[in-house]
């Protein structure tokens, strides 16, 4: 779909990412400045009681926003609200999804979420995409 304004209620935007690699998380740590070692170093993750390193919640949230990037000429993300509910481990395959719930003259409201390969929810929330007149 080339125009977001053509979406109808319950239509979805979705993308499935490549399996999560350590390099993905090292890059995000460097780009964001969040060097909490549970995201990059196995021993530190284990010390924290985790089975292995986990993705930054903000890595997933940052990825999810890209569903809307192609439509920057039609509008922008005015509100982006996320609740973190699950963890992303190395090699997980994450699917990002946005579903149009409401459409008004100057905005579109989406339910957004990310799931892992087992269909378990990782993050969930809402996007209000403000549209230009």
């Amino acid at each position: 779909m080339s125009h977001i304004l053509e979406l109808k209620k319950n239509d979805t935007l979705a993308v499935t990412l490549d399996p999560v690699s350590r390099m993905d998380l090292i890059k995000y740590a460097g780009a964001s400045g969040d060097f909490n070692p549970i995201h990059t170093i196995d021993e530190e993750a284990k010390k924290a009681g985790l089975p292995g390193i986990i993705a930054h919640g903000m890595w997933t949230m940052g990825n999810l926003a890209k569903l809307f990037t192609p439509y920057y000429e039609e509008g922008f993300i005015q509100d982006y609200q996320i609740r973190f509910s699950g963890m992303v481990f190395l090699h997980d395959v994450v699917t990002l999804q946005a579903e149009l719930k409401d459409k008004a003259a100057d905005y579109m409201d989406f339910d957004v979420k990310a799931m892992n390969q087992k269909g378990r929810e990782i993050i969930k929330g809402k996007v209000r995409f403000a549209t230009y007149q």
Binding site: D24, Y28, A31, S32, G62, A65, K66
Partner: peptide, 8 residues
């Protein structure tokens, strides 16, 4: 760098 890190 940030855009690259979130694959966007």
């Amino acid at each position: 760098r940030f855009a690259e890190a979130v694959g966007d």
